[in-house]
Amino acid sequence: MLLRRRREEVGLTLEEVARHLECHKATISRLELGRSGLRARDLRQLLELYGVTDEERVESYVEMSRQGRKSGWWERHASGLRPAYTDFIALEAEAVGMRSYQPLLIPGLLQTPAYARCIIAAHPAVVSEEELERRVEVRLGRQALLAGGGSLTFRAVIGEAALRSGVGGESVMRAQVEHLLEVADRPNVDVQVLPLGVGEHPGGSGPFVIFTFPLPEESHVVCEEGLLTSVYLDSVDEVRAYASAFDALCAAALSPRVSCDMLAELVLGLK
Rank of each mutant, 00 (worst) to 15 (best):
M1N: 15
L2A: 13
L3N: 04
T13K: 13
E15T: 12
E15D: 14
A18P: 15
R19D: 14
R19G: 07
K25L: 07
T27L: 08
I28Y: 14
I28A: 11
I28G: 13
S29V: 01
R30K: 07
L33R: 15
G37A: 14
R41E: 09
R41S: 07
L43R: 01
R44G: 01
R44S: 03
L46E: 09
L46S: 08
L47V: 03
L49V: 04
G51F: 09
V58M: 01
V58L: 03
E59N: 13
E59L: 14
Y61T: 00
Y61I: 00
Y61H: 07
M64L: 14
M64R: 13
S65V: 13
R66M: 01
G68L: 03
G68P: 00
S71F: 00
S71H: 01
W74G: 08
W74F: 12
E75L: 14
E75Q: 14
R76I: 06
R76T: 13
R76G: 10
A78V: 14
G80T: 12
P83G: 13
A84I: 04
Y85A: 06
T86Q: 06
I89W: 05
E94L: 15
Y101G: 07
Y101N: 06
Y101K: 11
Q102F: 02
P103D: 00
L104Q: 09
P107T: 04
L110K: 03
Q111I: 00
Q111W: 02
A114T: 11
Y115L: 11
A116I: 09
C118Q: 15
A122Q: 06
H123Q: 07
V127A: 12
S128W: 01
E131Y: 08
L132N: 06
R135K: 11
R139G: 03
R139E: 01
R139N: 03
A144C: 03
L145W: 15
A147H: 07
G148R: 12
G148V: 11
G149H: 10
G150I: 03
T153C: 02
A156W: 02
A156T: 05
V157D: 07
I158H: 04
E160P: 07
E160H: 10
A161N: 10
R164W: 03
G166H: 10
G169E: 02
Q176H: 05
V177I: 15
H179M: 05
E182H: 09
V183F: 01
A184E: 00
N188F: 06
V189M: 00
D190I: 04
V191Q: 05
Q192L: 12
Q192G: 12
V193Y: 02
L194K: 09
L194S: 03
L196K: 12
G197C: 05
V198L: 02
P202I: 09
G204K: 05
S205H: 13
P207M: 08
F208A: 04
V209P: 00
P214W: 03
L215Q: 12
P216T: 02
E217Q: 05
E217R: 10
H220Q: 13
C223L: 09
E224W: 12
E224V: 15
E224S: 15
L227N: 08
S235L: 14
S235R: 15
S235A: 14
E238S: 06
E238K: 02
V239Y: 05
S244G: 00
A248M: 11
A252L: 14
A253D: 04
A253N: 01
S255G: 12
P256C: 08
C260I: 04
L263W: 07
A264N: 10
L266Q: 01
G269M: 11
